[in-house]
Computed example of a mutant assay.
Amino acid sequence: QAIQTCAENAANRKLSKKKNGKDILDKAQFIENLGLTETVELAKEAIPYHRKINGKSLTQDVQLTATDVNAVTPQRLRLEVPVGVPLPWPTDRPPTGWLLCNGAGFDKTRYPLLASAYPSGQLPNLRG
Rank of each mutant, 00 (worst) to 15 (best):
G121E: 13
Y49Q: 15
Q29C: 05
F30T: 02
L87E: 02
I3N: 11
T39C: 10
H50I: 12
K56F: 11
V72I: 15
P112W: 01
Q1I: 14
L100N: 02
L34T: 02
A66H: 09
N102E: 03
G84D: 08
N20R: 02
V69D: 04
L100K: 07
C101W: 08
L42A: 03
E38S: 15
K27P: 08
G84E: 04
S57H: 10
T73Y: 12
D26L: 13
S120R: 04
A2M: 13
Y118C: 04
P48T: 04
I47W: 06
V40G: 01
K18G: 03
R76T: 06
G97R: 15
V62N: 08
A28E: 12
A11P: 13
P112T: 05
E41Y: 06
E41C: 01
R127C: 12
G121V: 14
A117N: 04
A115L: 08
G128V: 14
G97H: 09
L79A: 09
N9W: 06
Q122K: 15
A28M: 04
L64C: 06
G128F: 03
N54T: 10
A104I: 07
G84H: 03
Q60L: 09
E38P: 03
Q29W: 15
N33P: 05
T73D: 07
Y111E: 04
K19R: 06
L126C: 05
T109H: 06
F106C: 02
W98A: 14
Y49P: 09
V72W: 03
N70C: 10
P95W: 00
T67A: 14
L77R: 09
G55V: 10
T67I: 15
K18P: 02
R93I: 15
R110D: 03
G21A: 00
P112E: 00
G128H: 14
K27R: 09
V81W: 03
R51Y: 11
R93V: 08
P88I: 10
K44D: 10
V62R: 03
L15F: 02
P112D: 01
A7M: 05
Q75N: 13
D26R: 12
L36I: 13
L34E: 04
L113H: 12
A7Q: 05
Y49I: 07
K108C: 07
A104F: 03
A66W: 14
L42M: 11
F106K: 00
N12Y: 00
I47G: 00
L79V: 10
H50C: 09
L87N: 11
E41D: 04
N102R: 03
R13L: 00
I31F: 02
T109W: 12
N12V: 01
E45T: 11
S116K: 06
P90T: 07
P95E: 08
L99S: 02
P90S: 14
T65R: 09
L113V: 11
I3W: 12
P119M: 07
V72S: 10
K56Y: 15
L126A: 06
K19F: 00
Q29N: 03
P82W: 04
S16I: 00
Q60N: 06
P88F: 11
W89P: 11
A71P: 07
F30A: 02
W89V: 08
Q29I: 10
K19G: 01
E45N: 05
R13F: 03
E38C: 12
D61K: 15
Y49S: 11
A66L: 05
